[in-house]
């Protein structure tokens, strides 16, 4: 499979309108779909490039997704976590994105 040297700390997520988000690989991999795309044993293109293009998600939503991924990682171990603030107009798109990305 692909060489391990390509496993970087940060990966790039790209929205359909061209925004790029560089986030921690560990946070990104909370999303099942991203995790599988970057799985070193499979060796897909995304893994080679450390870059996942997500043509179904726009920049605004992806930003919120990234925010959530970090939020999730930060609070993974704690209890009584405060709810994340989500604008109502983003809700639906976030839900779709979640269904698409999660896998878990």
């Amino acid at each position: 499979m692909a060489a391990d040297r390509k496993v970087t700390d940060y990966v790039t997520l790209v929205s359909n309108d061209g925004y790029e988000f560089k986030i921690l690989r560990s946070a990104a991999c909370i999303a099942g779909t991203i995790k599988k795309a970057l799985d070193p044993t499979s060796g897909f293109r995304e893994m080679e490039q450390n870059r996942v293009e997500l043509p179904t998600i726009n920049g605004v939503t992806l930003e919120k997704v990234c925010e959530y991924l970090y939020y999730n990682q930060k609070h993974a171990e704690s209890k009584d976590v405060p709810d994340m603030e989500i604008q109502p107009e983003l809700c639906l798109e976030l839900l779709i994105a979640a269904d698409y990305l999660d896998g878990e």
Partner: peptide, 15 residues
């Protein structure tokens, strides 16, 4: 030859 393929694309198709 998986490295030529985009996982996201395939996943999107199946999705």
């Amino acid at each position: 030859n998986a490295s030529r393929l985009s996982y996201e694309e395939l996943y999107r198709h199946a999705y």
